[in-house]
Amino acid sequence: MLLKQNLRLHRILLITWKVDLIMLISCVVAHYADIILLKEVTIPAALPTLLGTAIAFFIGFNNNQAYDRWWEARIIWGALVNDSRTWARNLLAYFSEASESKIIGEDLRQCQRTMIYRHIAFLYALKASLRKCDYSDYEKFLSREEVEKVKTFSNIPNAILDLQSHDLQRISKEGIIDGFRFLPMNDLLRSFCDGMGKSERINNTVFPTTYVYFTRLFIWMFVVLTTMSIAGSVGHWSIFLGFMVGFVFHTSHINGMSIMNPFENTTAGVPISSITRTIEINLLQALGEQDIPEPVKPVDGEYIL
């Protein structure tokens, strides 16, 4: 996620240089094609004007849909932050030593620690799943037996939630928490599952390829027609003007496409690495742990992943 309101020139060039180069070549070819090959053909200025208006609607639709996907992803992970803190708070505050329970003293403390650590593992496993990377960060928060067990499942985050549900049921039967406290904690597990499912829905739903493809095609047509329509009146300046008009349209479209897949490990994506680390820090501090990791640091002060 970008942290600054203003972009440096090198980052703009890094994002657009390929399109800029192709567009410049296209404008040069279009200019000389108009003055050499199509000397007797005059392209009316109204043609690129109408086409540009239509393309603006296409780009606006694409960008709106892209931002909706990005913002929904950010809301989902914002809810995971709040629910994770509540989960740890409830585990630490709701547990009590029931007289009929076998879980007392240090065993009770270890149970709390295990369930909080397991939740951190859930977040790291979910992050790895969304970014389609083979991260094993979650393993250090699970026991060896739990690691071997969850690896037998195709959906590791969901398998970790299953372990949490079984332990929650066990401590309820042991009398560690009563029915009134069991319900909100079970609702939190359901919220975690909802957040996971919503994230997977966004991640696995491909934006219709035809919208992206035809929008790009129409922009290239627009750039060529604009250059050719003004070549006769402004001469070689048509190359520069066609390039500038195309730069505006292409860059606007690239901006939308950069956030179309919000969980990608890019500068414009939702910073789920930073969010996961923040939750980890909060939960470990709630436990009173001493070995607390540092927050994820911004890259060059410009963005955070």
Rank of each mutant, 00 (worst) to 15 (best):
M244K: 01
F182I: 05
E200V: 04
D134H: 13
Q65L: 11
E174F: 07
I25L: 14
L225V: 07
G235L: 03
Y135D: 15
F58M: 13
G52C: 04
D291I: 12
S96P: 03
S252E: 08
V19Y: 12
D300C: 01
I43T: 09
A45N: 12
T209C: 12
W87K: 00
I259E: 07
K102Y: 10
M23W: 00
W70D: 01
C193H: 13
E40C: 06
I76K: 00
A93R: 10
I36M: 13
S96K: 15
S101A: 06
R89K: 13
L92S: 04
F263D: 08
D291L: 13
K140W: 05
P48C: 01
V28G: 04
A128W: 05
I12R: 10
F153T: 07
I176G: 06
I75T: 11
I239E: 00
V41G: 08
N282V: 10
E148D: 14
R74N: 08
H236E: 13
E145H: 11
L2G: 09
Q112Y: 01
L241P: 02
G256T: 03
L13E: 05
R8F: 06
V224R: 02
G197P: 03
V296I: 15
I76F: 01
F95G: 07
P293I: 11
V234N: 00
I239L: 03
E40V: 03
A128M: 08
T226A: 13
V19M: 11
E280H: 00
K39Y: 00
S172D: 06
N63I: 06
W87P: 04
M196H: 14
V223P: 00
A46F: 11
F57N: 01
T16F: 12
F141P: 02
I281K: 02
K18Y: 03
Y124C: 05
G105W: 06
I12A: 08
I281S: 09
N261Y: 08
Q285A: 13
F218A: 13
I25S: 07
E72H: 03
M23D: 07
L188W: 02
A159K: 03
N63V: 09
L21R: 01
R74L: 05
G197R: 11
G269I: 04
Q110I: 11
L183Y: 12
